[in-house]
């Protein structure tokens, strides 16, 4: 008998299968269009004739914060991460990854990496392009790269977990993104600590010096906490996967 599959091998095989199932033309084109729309907005704002550099920067940071971190990053992450294990659970293919001599965390990590692999280019490219078109210097571009990548990692982990917890993960996730992160978190900074947007905004603020609503945490906190959220969510997802009743 073969015994337990080594972790790297288990992660890589899960990654390959999930990646293959996730990349559908409809999803990539649909979400790609959102990216294009965002970049066009960035270009339009970048073209505006605003004399004062500080106002330009403030405008630009506001735009990035709004389109990249309330829409593009959470929504793209949601679509792929929630589907990664959630879809296999819904359609009954999870059994082909579950009833195997592989540790649960390797399956979760493989699925998460697959979701991140699709989401990263679909978020980082358009948001960075937007930041460049906004034309306010490299600070915003660097901040956007860091915050987008970190946002994708954290949101993806969170939504992989969500996909294992509820049936209509995308609908619940949209509710979370719009209602919780969009409305509830806007009420104050204590609420922002339980919204990933609070941390991505803080990175923008720290790098560009432009005050944002929710953006009052230090850059270190802004980087460390999302990483911790990602790890925590993945651990919970592994536990959840282990306790799941699989069809």
């Amino acid at each position: 008998m073969t015994g337990t599959v080594a972790a790297p091998q288990a992660i890589s095989v899960t990654y390959r299968v999930i990646l293959r199932q996730l990349v559908t033309t409809g999803r990539v084109v649909g979400l790609g269009l959102i990216g294009v729309a965002v970049a066009v907005v960035g270009w339009a704002v970048g073209q505006s004739i605003e004399s004062s550099a500080s106002v330009r920067l403030e405008n630009a940071v506001g735009v990035i914060s709004l389109v990249a971190f309330t829409i593009v990053v959470p929504v793209v992450s949601l679509v792929f991460a929630a589907a990664s294990l959630g879809d296999t659970r819904e359609d009954g293919t999870l059994v082909y990854l579950w009833l195997r001599p592989m540790r649960r965390w390797t399956v979760v990590v493989g699925a998460w990496l697959a979701a991140v692999t699709v989401s990263l280019p679909l978020t980082v490219i358009p948001t960075v392009l937007t930041a460049m078109l906004l034309d306010v210097g490299s600070d915003l571009i660097v901040a956007t790269i860091i915050a987008s990548a970190l946002g994708v990692l954290a949101y993806s982990a969170l939504f992989v977990l969500l996909g294992l917890l509820v049936k209509n993960a995308i609908v619940w996730g949209l509710g979370y993104v719009i209602i919780w992160e969009g409305v509830v978190a806007a009420f104050g900074s204590s609420a922002a600590k339980v919204a990933i947007r609070g941390y991505t905004s803080s990175i923008l603020t720290a790098r560009t010096g432009v005050q944002l609503e929710l953006g009052d945490l230090s850059q270190t906190v802004g980087i460390v906490v999302p990483a911790l959220i990602a790890v925590g969510a993945l651990v919970l997802a592994a536990v959840r996967l282990d306790r799941l009743e699989v069809a």
Partner: peptide
């Protein structure tokens, strides 16, 4: 959101 930004930040 796009309309908000274009009017608010891009002199639309």
């Amino acid at each position: 959101t796009i309309v908000d930004i274009l009017i608010g930040s891009a002199d639309g």
